[in-house]
Design a binder for these strands. Structure first.
Length: 185
DNA sequence: TAGGCCATCTGGTCCT
DNA sequence: AGGACCAGATGGCCTA
């Protein structure tokens, strides 16, 4: 969460505020609006935006007929918005956990999401390389072809997941095991 | 000031 | 049927 500004950013008209006017504007009066008709074609968020600009590109498209009252729709939309916020918060928490799990140089600057994913991918690759190197050293009689080692590593990891992985701390346990393994070898 | 990043809203689709 | 997921749109904040 950014430190400032986000709390006061709700300047867009809420669905509750604009719902009535938009519904009148976008629904062709007197038309037979059956569920699943052309009205349900995918337009996503561009629908309102294009209409607001007065574009004629989407003429003829109508919002799907809603069977519930405006008030019920309003309530469901607000509930849906809340769920979506919670979902995005969980996603952001996961990003934050990932940020804390990967080492990076600019500790003072928060990694963006794309940076986090990219660094995480590179970190996994680096760790995999290290582990493959260690397993190659410890298994002199095994075939040391990269694909073979990688396959064994994956097998071992999956087995480990099935046997032990149950909670949120499992990744740190695994990293601890890797750390211990490195120290002992 | 432009561009990057982000939070939020929104409606369609998928899944249970 | 309802919730989860997804992607587009929008507008605010920040930085170069």
């Amino acid at each position: 969460m950014k430190s400032k500004g986000k709390g006061s950013k709700r300047t867009r008209r809420s669905w509750a505020e604009q719902e009535h006017a938009d519904f009148q504007l976008e629904t062709e009066p007197g038309s037979s609006e059956q569920e699943g008709s052309e009205a349900s074609l995918q337009l996503g968020g561009s629908w309102k935006a294009l209409n607001a600009e007065g574009s004629s590109r989407i003429t003829g498209r109508r919002r799907r007929r809603q069977h519930s009252s405006a008030k019920e729709r309003n309530v469901r939309r607000l509930e849906s918005n809340e769920r979506e916020r919670q979902r995005m918060h969980k996603l952001n928490n996961a990003f934050q956990a990932l940020r804390e799990a990967i080492p990076h140089v600019k500790m003072d600057k928060k990694l963006s999401k794309i940076e986090t994913l990219t660094l995480a991918k590179n970190y996994i690759k680096a760790l995999t390389t290290i582990i493959l190197g260690m397993s190659g050293a410890c298994l002199p009689h095994e075939g040391n072809q990269p694909e073979e080692s990688q396959s064994k590593l994956l097998q071992h990891y999956q087995q480990h997941l099935e046997d032990n992985m149950k909670g949120q701390d499992d990744l740190s346990k695994l990293l601890e095991q890797i750390h211990n393994f490195r120290n002992s070898s």
